[in-house]
């Protein structure tokens, strides 16, 4: 069941469309990713869905209601939002902030439980201004969840977190999803999206250029896999190049690289075994989402970021 439906969403700033005819839906219980370079319109899109911005054209339904319509107040009981840029007063403590936000909702989560789950127990009575970047980020995620939302919007979830904290955060976000909360994740980190998302929309210059599961996107980008190895005995390329699924064989120094798709890798290893050719450094590489992204969009996020 679609918990969010967006149809032909358009938002212009100064006559220039920042979001240009975007349509997608988010199913209940999934983690839906919105991936794209800075300035692609990701944040504007989710802000229209959250009700922070009024679309210039198109329709948005969240939990069956229009974020700017009569059901908006009820809708806000059911969503939790972590904004990309939002801060708290310097002197408020972690526990106070969670308690205050909990008071806004009819059926809030237990702030103390959230404090523990998000690793802020030692900081519960610390003031906001004394928290590290990572602690602030975790507090914002906890604040997004304190209302026991049905849909959580997380914008640039792991910005400012160290690698270890990122992985921990990913695990917790999966727990959130497993508890039945639908998650909309805005990100420009490939690994994060690949790790977490059930489906991903790639947004570029205000338009969705691809929408699929992460593995679907990788598949669609060619899904090429590479098998590399060093033969320990002379190897005739023709032995391999004719095998089903193999698309190419090349050599660099003593290393053979075979590209292909489907089950070509086991075909290759079987053929090698049959011919009693021992190999070393055997590695199978599967293209990741970042390679797929480059193939699908013709650019990398990094170069877009630099603009």
């Amino acid at each position: 069941m679609a918990i969010i439906e967006v149809t032909d969403l358009t938002k212009k700033y100064g006559g220039r469309p920042v979001v240009d005819g975007v349509s997608f839906h988010v199913d209940e219980g999934e983690i839906f990713g919105i991936l794209g370079p800075n300035g692609a319109g990701k944040t504007t899109t989710v802000e229209c869905v959250e009700g922070l911005r009024r679309p210039d054209a198109g329709h948005v339904r969240v939990l069956g209601a229009d974020p700017h319509g009569p059901g908006a107040a009820e809708l806000r009981q059911g969503i939790g939002v972590q904004l990309q840029r939002a801060e708290l007063p310097d002197h408020i403590t972690v526990r106070e902030a969670l308690g205050l936000y909990a008071s806004f909702y009819r059926g809030p989560a237990d702030p103390d439980e959230l404090v523990t789950r998000w690793g802020l127990a030692e900081k519960r009575d610390s003031r906001y201004s004394t928290l590290s970047g990572g602690q602030k980020q975790r507090l914002f995620i906890a604040l997004a969840l304190v209302g026991n939302p049905r849909v959580a919007f997380l914008d640039e979830l792991t910005t400012g977190l160290d690698p270890q904290a990122r992985r921990a955060t990913w695990r917790l976000v999966k727990d959130v999803r497993d508890a039945g909360v639908t998650v909309v994740l805005v990100s420009h980190f490939m690994d994060e999206v690949e790790e977490l998302c059930d489906r991903v929309a790639i947004l570029e210059r205000g338009r969705i250029t691809a929408l699929d599961t992460p593995s679907g996107l990788i598949e669609r980008a060619g899904g090429a896999q590479r098998l590399r190895f060093r033969p320990l005995a002379p190897l005739d390329d023709s032995l391999i190049s004719g095998l089903p699924g193999v698309t190419g064989v090349s050599r660099t120094g003593g290393q053979v690289e075979v590209t292909g798709n489907g089950d070509f890798a086991s075909e290759v290893t079987t053929a090698l075994a049959r011919n009693h050719i021992l190999v070393s450094d055997l590695r199978l590489e599967r293209a990741g989402l970042d390679e797929a992204y480059v193939t699908l969009t013709g650019s990398t996020l990094d170069t877009e970021d630099a603009k």
């Binding site: 904004l83 840029r85 939002a86 936000y101 209302g147």
Partner: peptide, 10 residues
Amino acid sequence: GMLRRLAVTP
């Protein structure tokens, strides 16, 4: 951004 943050709560 605290006023915006409140705008997405009840």
